[in-house]
Write a protein that binds this DNA or RNA. Structure first.
Lengths: 381, 381
DNA sequence: CTGTTAGCGCGTTCAA
DNA sequence: TTGAACGCGCTAACAG
């Protein structure tokens, strides 16, 4: 009685189990038997293959629907070697950057008939490695990874290469990989240049942690200063976590305590800027008259803050969409397998927090730069 | 030459294809052959079964690692009839409510060894139906559905019942189903009562669309009014979309145009409240002195708005966590298969937008009600 | 302790 | 136009 019964021999064990209360699932075989046809005929009919008579096809379709037949994608994948599933790895799903990227990915993926298998690594590198392994084992057709840590040459990344699963990186770049992200140098450059054009003279930068994106933004910041013959002061550069308002607040506090304190801040993210804003207001500074502020990310409600926050939109959803489309192309062999990075053009959204004087006359990196209103945001969501 | 070659007979067709550039994937069989053992021995060794000698186990482990063996979960699922995957269906991934719920689900699911197969239906009921079908076909072990429409007795829902796939609803309730959500009546009651206790006298309500959550919140609103012997005026109830600031703004505008206009608004969501806030400020009303405002949801940055927004926290992430945990219990047979709804206790976060007078003295639904500061929010994330 | 055998549900080939 | 046979990679039962 304790043999490994086939479902056909002894259906009861399939329906009765305590842990598997699943009712009967209709298989091709069930449809075939009900019609006294063979499995392969039924299969051919359901696939609309031309070598099946119209009459048979209709009988099959009707019966399949009647029995509630749903193709078993697991079995199908085993033979076709494709799952129509894309693995997505993100470090923190609750951060708006990643949710918007995932939304974009889903848009592109679902349009091409792919589903998303989602992994939240909670910033844990070892978890990230193991999740990638599981995803490969799940036979995903491709992967999109927003890495928590620099993809070193560890086992997992070799594994990725060895198995040949196509993958696209997002947010963190690594050489010889497909990559889609914001143009961080541009972001830093645009933001800083904007503050300069608004007439601010002592511009500080609250940078992000030591990752590519933060480094790029910092670089853009220094370039913009150089370009306008302003000097870069070490003391004007402090660090905070991207998603941490408190850190931004503390960083701004530090900057304000400096002997020759700045009159503007380019924050590497909106949350940092929001934190900074708190400190500035506590100090009694008038914004934008006494002090200018700009962030990055275009978070929702940024325009409704106590001072509407200027920001650089890095096109988050578009990043996801492009990454998804690229991966699909890679999977279907339509894309250039040579890895080349895609950088999306950032857009300046000048709102009140930085509009000292020049704003209406137009710093004009973007045409809608002087419209800190509903429309400017709607157009960018 | 055009037969269906097995991979062992003719490996080239598996590695050479244009659309499938996947390198060789190591199978149990490969490990077995390399070691001159049988597949089942290797399998047993990898599963740490006790009836394998220590020596063999080590040889197998070493060789498996050396060859980069990763178990094929598709094949495994086909035989075990379990995928360790949970299907998640949401109407709009970019809305913070759903991303937080999904984050919570993932937390519970991953802790139990499950992965998430995510479907974004973009509010399209027909898409929702087809996605659920696909998920069932994917043999997911269970489903969590945040429905876009009332689950009518259509084909898909019968299918769900028939196949016996365990599922949990979130956000929208339907009779005889497992459900986890906020306690909407409580939400409406608490918010309205709070406004009353703050001394506001003509309290309006901007309700959500005609779904369960909005109906519950409306009911709580009317109950609170009744309880305090205030009458419910039809004109004081207008409607907007949950996630639409503009709609909230328009709704507030309508209310302010009323002959006997209100002096406070309970908005069914934070975005609605944020939109309303705009209208109020445009009208030159002082908040909270002239006008009280409270929303629902505790969106991020709500405390940094031009007027820090009072809100009712419905515990979004917790909703996901509970739903995930419940589903896992259902799958493993540890849960009561009798459907009973779980309603999470809402929490009042009284910030400036509603703190006319009584705030510091304490309306005291929650102890931290009088702390519109960092801490109150940090504790609730 | 190890190997043999059978089967999960579907897709493909080839013979009838 | 239809059906029989095989294999995808893995797991479980059972015999040796």
């Amino acid at each position: 009685m304790s043999r490994f019964y086939s479902r056909d021999e002894n259906p009861s064990i399939w329906t009765g189990g305590a842990r598997d209360s699943s009712g009967m699932r209709t298989r091709l075989k069930d449809v075939a038997e009900a019609l006294k046809l063979s499995v392969s005929t039924v299969n051919a009919a359901l696939q609309n293959r031309p070598d099946i008579s119209q009459k048979t096809r209709e009988r099959v379709l009707r019966k399949a629907r009647e029995l509630g037949y749903l193709p078993n994608r697991v079995a199908r994948s085993l033979v076709t070697q494709r799952t129509q599933v894309i693995g997505v790895v993100v470090p923190d799903l609750s951060r708006s950057f990643f949710t918007e990227v995932v939304t974009g990915i889903d848009e592109a993926a679902s349009a091409a008939g792919y589903h998303l298998l989602l992994c939240n690594t909670r910033e844990d590198p070892s978890r990230e490695d193991s999740e990638i392994q599981t995803l490969i084992g799940s036979q995903v057709d491709g992967l999109i990874i927003a890495s928590a840590h620099a993809p070193s040459e560890n086992e997992v990344w070799r594994e990725l290469r060895r198995t040949g699963v196509p993958f696209v990186l997002v947010d963190r770049f690594f050489r010889d990989t497909h990559f889609v992200g914001g143009d961080d140098e541009q972001i830093g450059f645009i933001a800083t240049k904007h503050l300069i054009q608004q007439g601010y003279e002592r511009i500080a930068h609250i940078r992000g942690p030591n990752v590519m994106t933060a480094i790029g933004r910092l670089k853009g910041y220094t370039q913009a200063l150089h370009r306008h013959n302003m000097r870069v002061r070490r003391a004007y550069i402090v660090e905070a976590q991207y998603h941490d308002e408190t850190g931004g607040s503390e960083a701004a506090y530090k900057l304000l305590s400096l002997p020759d304190s700045p009159d503007a801040i380019f924050a590497a993210s909106d949350p940092i800027a929001i934190g900074a804003l708190e400190s500035l207001q506590q100090r009694g500074l008038r914004i934008p008259e006494d002090f200018g502020l700009i962030g990055v990310g275009n978070v929702r409600y940024g325009q409704y803050l106590s001072v509407p926050l200027s920001t650089v939109d890095q096109q988050r959803q578009e990043i996801g969409k492009k990454a998804g489309a690229m991966l699909v192309d890679l999977i279907t062999g339509r894309a250039n397998p040579r890895a080349l990075p895609i950088l999306l053009e950032p857009r300046l959204l000048a709102r009140r927090s930085s509009c000292c004087k020049g704003c209406v006359s137009g710093s004009a990196v973007v045409s809608r730069v002087n419209a800190p209103d509903h429309k400017s945001v709607a157009a960018n969501r």
